[in-house]
Design a protein around this nucleic acid. Sequence first.
DNA 1: ATTTTCAAT
Length: 484
Amino acid sequence: MVRLELDQVVIRRMKEDDIETVKALIKEGGEGTENRLILHVLTRPLCLFILAIVSSVLRCLVHSFILALAIPVFLLIIFLKITMPRATGVLGTSRPYWDYVGSSFRGAQDDTLENPYARISGKTAAAKKRRVKPKTKEEASAPPEKIDPDREEAAGQVWLADCDGEIAGCACRESEKRPGIRRICRVVVGSWYRREGLGRLLVQSLERREREVGARRIYAHVPFPSKLGEAFFRKLGYQPLGERTREEDEEEDEEVKVETAERGFLGFPLTKVYYKDLVLLAQKKFMYNYKNMRWAKGRNQTYLCFVVKRRLGPDSLSFDFGHLHNRTGCHAELLFLSHLGALCPGLWGCGGDENRRLSYSVTWFCSWSPCANCAATLARFLRLTPNLRLRIFVARLYFCDVEDSPHREGLRNLRRAGVLVNVMSYKDYFYCWQTFVAHRLSRFKAWEGLHTNSVRLSRTLNRILQPCETEDLRDAFRLIGLLT
DNA sequence: ATTTTCAAT
């Protein structure tokens, strides 16, 4: 295991010199996956059944029982070994071959992705960039051959994680077939560099880049039985396609049809499709879920829009934003916490300098206020991370009507943990609309009674938090010695 | 005046 300095990693486009290294890397990454995939196909009931039939037929011809059993299995394995990588590109591609030459970068200036760790430690990774090893062949001096831009476009892009001249990992972005929709595939980290957050760094940097150039959704096809791959993408905020509720949206069904899993031998799906919406919330969804009317019927979901600001000093600030909603069995707040590690690199001191204390300020806009449970978890969590500040704006209060509601206590609990809880007002709605919603240049239109509802809820919230304030005051008095 | 709330089929 090599200890990685994540802030020293340069993420750059693959060049023609790198092709052989990358091929080896992908082959290395593909091996385990391929074997697992074959095992997966072999153990499907239908496949076992067919194998059994073939074996019994063979038994009539061959005397040896063992042979009759082994031959079909053996042949099938050979068959799969040969056809599998061709029929379905392993590691989540749809293409049998990757056009390495077409996808390699031939610009004069290095094209690199922003590395969030690099900014934390303050050193610019680019400054330490090593020169590419000079080629041994004479064509090194020759200008690179011109390649058809169409071919380049079709080939997609390969990005490499360059650790001090060593290629430690790669991730590919396929060509854009539909506007705004991207697909990431072939995410491989060399076996010496695993479990250090390099894959995450690669995928997240790539996401950031794609978002900047207008992508709205990213797909990742995870080879089927890969628990590791699934966990990896889930952790980065991806979710499996077609696992959502019925009323969620109609467009989902369309997507399932368009973006289907690769199917191989006997039509077994070989990949599981994960996706992530990069930024924007649909107008209808935002309006429906954040409406602060008194009787919010049917809002059986909680949406959470967040802004994560990273602060290194008074003049260094970067921010990230997005939205998520609860999944079955997991409230949106806890879901956010599970993504926190990815959103706040270095929150627990990894990758950052000890003497440079970086701090995060997180703002949430929730359609429902947190429940007692989430509040308790959050409060516990925040006590462990003093360099994380949380502000919560809520559209509506969750089950807070009765005086002795545990959720009321939960809100006070949050308050005591130093969280600022507020009810969303017009300007917060306006900000959300500008920031999280695909507004397409239309301005936020307030609904009837937004203001009055907001004021009413705000009063309620203040009443709920009142005991807290007095307690704070008591603390303050105690501090200055007026109270014992 | 009265509706409802991080679903369950």
